[in-house]
Design a protein around this nucleic acid. Structure first.
Lengths: 336, 336
DNA sequence: ACGAACTACGCAAACGTTTGTCTTCCAAAT
DNA sequence: ATTTGGAAGACAAACGTTTGCGTAGTTCGT
């Protein structure tokens, strides 16, 4: 270590952080030497001693989903500005991996945790450890209502209602829905929002108009589209719980020679980049993933730095917007 | 700590890792107690003592690019199977951030590092620290030829040649190129591959057929397309150095009423998901990002675990494939 | 019955920092 | 000349593990 080349260990430490009780000359010399020796402080040791790691752990399903990586970008932006590092753990939507990730995070003494739950997860004991050990925990998007924690979400119910009412406003009378896994609150809420919109507008609510999927994959979107197309009285609008399935629906509809939006209008959810590429471009809900990430990061950092706050739980709801594109721009709209 | 509830500190440690020199009964009791107390070993302390973190640091430009996140998925798969954790640092293509990331990685005592260089980077001193301190370093994709390290790449030159020759094979005579930042080796190589294909087939090599971009963004793709379309003798084929710009080219060409591929065939690079969504679907080079990640991870782990190996540098070249889709399926092809 | 060989565990040092307190030295005030 | 005070730095403990070695207690062979 650097100390042996000059003097004592504590002096080095203080010099490196420009502590006032160390002389100017000494301080400068130490910095010089550190430079020359290519010295890197061992943060393991420092963190151990200080009992603070400046680490924010993030547990998410998959990094290669646009929504998730946008949220992470938001988290990172806020965190790094505040002097925190972000370490990412993927659950791959597996409960076991999520549990393992939580264990690792506990072991690595993260100062705070941000999580978006895996599809499979319906037991939350592995996350209790954070609560029990006073490490701040913030959920976003796929949150857990059974646990009393801070959350960042969007109003999925309202957004779904908005999307469905948009379909109604352009004249759709029979509106179908491609629903996500009903274990997950956000997908339940989107289904409910869809139903509520129908109810308020006195439109048909038939069970067969709802296609339940496992994971809203493209394949399932195509299957849903086929089912809808084969129905005797075919729906004229579809609200899908994500963009991937919505795009698949569009493609499948077109494959059969029908027109989007004229024969069937389509609305997605999330405003991923592909929604701009598909033809016709997809009307969708912009869920502001980046902002969700920012809010979650700010929230967790506040908890880290002001632990005395007695807020048991706080929920932030991020704005969402309906982005109208061609997939719901009926040419006959003006004629109506 | 758990020890105070029973006996000595070392016994606990050994019991937790099922060391043979600890009695069955004792071992079981310790595990039980750990369970009950919700005990999480402090890996900071353990790592400090063992001088091994099981951490692999990854420095990449941006997590929300499909190529990068696929590569990370590959890295993670291999790493986690081998008992390593992956911690991700984004450079946002900024040299300063990359330097900072490298410093942090050095401080956190990562066992190995995998890096994909930022656009801005053309000085490599910050990465020398790894070499100097014997922490294995593997580059992938955007590698650095000035440093003697292990690398995982694809044959960008060959792939570009393959792509361009494919355009030639479908009858294109005037082939343009949307080139990436020429500071980066891979984009230089792709340009060279394009040129070589033209040379070998005795086709026109005009400077104005090459459109140089800063970052191959969608916007730049559209600008390139416009330039090409306005040329007196319009190119009938375009090879773009990435998918984003290629898709923009397709959209812009269509916007002006021209047909892809009949008026202008388009080839991209990377086989991102959007290449399947755009119409016509994009012919592109599949660069096997996931496999690159896997290979890089295997490579760095091998170096970590077999430090005696005297291999100064090794380069792995991952297979790449041309994926032919409608953007180069000329209907007149059979007529030719 | 005596020592050898095991078994099962404790002791203590070490990893590289941080930090509260103590010491030393020197200048200024009395 | 003696005290006072402040500046600059040293000492040592502590963070929570791991690990080489030592040492009781037990078992076994003779």
């Amino acid at each position: 270590m650097a100390e042996r080349l000059k003097v004592s260990p504590s002096t080095i430490s203080r010099a490196l952080q420009n502590h006032p009780s160390i002389g100017k000359k000494m301080t400068q010399e130490v910095h010089k030497l550190a430079e020359k020796l290519g010295y890197y402080p061992n943060s393991l040791a420092a963190n151990l001693r200080r009992n603070k790691t400046n680490l924010i752990g993030v547990i998410i399903p998959r990094i290669d989903r646009h929504f998730q990586s946008s949220a992470i970008s938001g988290i990172e932006e806020v965190a790094s500005k505040a002097g925190y590092y972000v370490v990412i753990f993927q659950s791959n939507n597996s409960y076991e991996r999520e549990k393992e990730n939580a264990r690792m995070l506990m072991s690595s003494q993260a100062d705070g945790v941000i999580a978006c739950l895996a599809m499979e997860t319906n037991n939350y004991d592995h996350l209790l450890a954070f609560k029990n050990n006073n490490v701040p925990l913030v959920f976003f998007d796929r949150v857990c209502y059974e646990l009393e924690t801070h959350k960042v979400v969007i109003d999925d119910f309202g957004a779904a209602m908005k999307a469905t009412e948009h379909l109604i406003s352009i004249g759709c009378k029979r509106i179908a829905h491609v629903a996500g896994n009903q274990q997950i609150a956000i997908f339940r809420d989107r289904l409910r929002g869809y139903q509520e919109a129908l109810r308020r507008n006195n439109l048909a609510q038939e069970d067969e108009l709802i296609y339940y999927t496992e994971d809203l994959s493209g394949k399932e979107g195509a299957l849903a589209a086929r089912r809808f197309l084969e129905m005797p009285s075919r729906p004229d609008g579809v609200f899908c719980s994500n963009d991937t399935s919505a795009i698949s629906v569009i493609q499948e509809v077109k494959r059969t020679g029908c027109k989007v939006p004229d024969d069937m209008a389509v609305v997605g959810f999330s405003n991923t980049p592909v929604s701009l590429i598909v033809e016709p471009a997809l009307t969708t809900i912009d869920d502001h993933a980046f902002e969700m990430g920012q809010a979650a990061a700010r929230m967790v950092i506040r908890q880290i730095e002001q632990p005395q706050e007695d807020i048991a739980s706080e929920t932030i709801i991020i704005r969402n917007d309906l982005v109208v594109r061609e997939s719901t721009l009926k040419q006959k709209l003006t004629a109506d």
